[in-house]
Design a protein around this nucleic acid. Structure first.
Length: 496
RNA sequence: GGCGGUAUCGUCUAGGGGUCAGGACACGUGGUUCUCAGCCACGGGACCGGGGUUCGAAUCCCCGUACCGCUACCA
């Protein structure tokens, strides 16, 4: 599912949930080519992951089923027949080639490119005899000429279109499948849909549909057309802009609540939220989905297209990462460790350990896929690689740094596994022995204990390393070398 | 080509006849007595153009321009 489409789903969901409405999932699978089992299950999977639960749908059923258009063919057929009998629709035998020629001619002549009406005046007898002769016609809706169709749009206000620029649309294809514009009208009416909220690419379809509602004697729902989501170059968001599908954002390690929150912010802001001279609590853009539902109003939705900004998505994601349950984060991170070449399948104890180490990653990372890099210092401690770095070598050539590391190894030699207090005590001991402080004290310690010049706070990292070193082999976590062993190995390597 | 839609910092937006045009992301600077990230503070940065209405227009109206959509027996 494309994020632009889920955003539409988000707005629908928000309205339904905020007003005690019913959120319905209907599968529009009248295009046999494009509609597959996979595409349907992918939609369900993405929607579920996003937390956009539905009250009625193909999987849960409901009083207005079935919820797949492919299972409602008899309904469309019956309404098409009704239209045919009323003279509001007619059979069309025109070939695609003929249609194409007519369209090109119309454009060349500066006329609107619409159906020429060739079969409009065929009598029912003429049509019937051609059908009997084996021709397979489509069914077109007879658009009344010379009047304006006006419909209200909650987002944009009244929209008026002359029927003179609307060609007679095909409502049933030659293969018997209904066309989109027809199927949705029948379904929306039968399913008693009150609000049709969709992308603005459908606004030109709406007049045709309004005409169909009229011809069928159905009451009109409320319409709301949402501006589209664009890429940074202001063209429709597509692959070349990077990730575009829910599945891709999921696999990059965005949290669903963050994606939902961010998507809702494109084209909508809570009334008065960003308003005023100073930012108060109301100015918060971080809003849990239920809170958004409570505040959501279609009237507050913007009119113009919005550019999808992954930087801002990442910012929103960070907020949710910080607030998330560490155990959940630990579970979600496991696949990323495996991808990153840190194979693991933690049991409960391993997970608990991972969760305890999560704080040093979740507060400083944009996405879950960055967690392994942030926590790699736990698992791959490599003295040779560290000393192979010219900068590290350089720093360790200083007498001060050398003394710090040696003193550290000494201090840790007798020490039990470090927790935060013991680490501080050890650091103070080194400080007293060497006279080094601040950066020239802690940076060599960091190098010796993590093998890296940068990383999480040592107060967090050091205890995590030693907790990991105590883990039994069956915890499902790669073996972790403790700080004592690291310091010793580092000094030894330095002396070589 | 025809028809429809849209136009406030780079981006998402608030506002709307008289405002220092506000906030958020991003960016820059400084702080956080180990680093990166984070966090905090401060800073630069916008009303598409032209007419009209009005004492006064970014705001209302018209035209233009740009962008987007539709113009399918796709949805």
């Amino acid at each position: 599912m494309h994020v632009g489409n889920v955003r539409t789903a988000v707005f629908n969901w928000l309205l339904a949930r905020g007003r005690g409405g019913t959120f319905i999932l209907r599968i529009e699978d009248t295009d046999v080519e494009r509609s597959t089992r996979d595409s349907e299950s992918a939609i369900l999977r993405d929607l579920r992951w996003m937390g956009l639960n539905w009250d009625e749908g193909p999987d849960v059923g409901g009083p207005y089923g079935p919820y797949r258009q492919s299972e409602r063919l008899h309904l469309y057929e019956s309404y098409a027949t009704q239209l045919l009998n009323a003279g509001a629709a007619y059979h069309c035998f025109c070939s695609t080639a003929q249609l194409e020629t007519e369209r090109r001619d119309a454009v060349a002549a500066g006329r609107p490119a619409l159906y020429a009406g060739t079969c409009r005046r065929l009598t029912r007898e003429q049509a019937q005899s051609r059908i009997d002769a084996g021709e397979r016609p489509a069914i077109r809706f007879r658009v009344p000429q010379g009047r304006d169709v006006v419909f209200g749009d909650i987002v944009r206000g009244a929209i008026k279109v002359s029927t003179d620029v609307i060609g007679d649309p095909v409502i049933v294809r030659a293969d018997g499948h209904p066309a989109y514009n027809f199927a949705v009208v029948v379904d929306d009416a039968l399913m008693e849909i009150t609000h049709v909220i969709r992308g603005e690419d459908h606004i030109s379809n709406t007049p045709r549909q309004v005409l169909l509602y009229e011809a069928l004697g159905f009451p009109l729902p409320a319409f709301a057309h949402l501006a589209l989501v664009m890429g940074p170059d202001h063209s429709p968001l597509s692959k070349r802009h990077g990730a575009t599908s829910v599945a891709e954002f999921r696999s990059k390690g965005y949290l669903p609540e963050a994606l939902v929150n961010y998507l809702a912010l494109i084209g909508w802001s809570p009334r008065g939220s960003a308003h005023g001279r100073s930012a108060g609590d109301d100015a918060k853009e971080i809003l849990p989905i239920d809170e958004m539902a409570r505040r959501f109003a279609l009237e507050d939705v913007g009119h113009s297209a919005g550019v999808f900004d992954e930087e801002k998505l990442a910012w929103v994601n960070r907020h949710y990462l910080k607030a998330a349950d560490p155990v959940r984060l630990a579970e979600l991170s496991v696949p990323y460790f495996n991808q990153a070449g840190i194979p693991m399948s933690p049991n409960a104890q391993g997970l608990e350990f991972l969760a305890s180490a999560m704080a040093m990653a979740s507060a400083s990372v944009d996405r879950l896929n960055e967690v392994p890099a942030r926590l790699a210092l736990l698992f791959d401690y490599n003295v040779e690689a560290a000393l192979g770095d010219p900068h590290v070598r350089d720093e360790m050539n200083g007498d001060g740094a050398r003394a710090v590391v040696t003193a550290l190894a000494d201090a840790l030699a007798q020490s039990p596994r470090l927790d935060r207090e013991r680490f501080r005590a050890a650091a103070n001991q080194v400080k007293a022995r060497t006279g080094q402080k601040g950066k020239s004290l802690f940076h060599p310690i960091r190098l010796a204990l993590t093998g890296r010049a940068e990383g999480p706070e040592l107060d967090l990292a050091v205890p995590a390393i030693d907790r990991g070193a105590e883990l039994p082999a069956d915890a499902g976590i790669p073996k972790i070398v403790g700080c004592r062993e690291r310091a010793t190995a580092f000094v030894a390597a330095l002396e070589r």
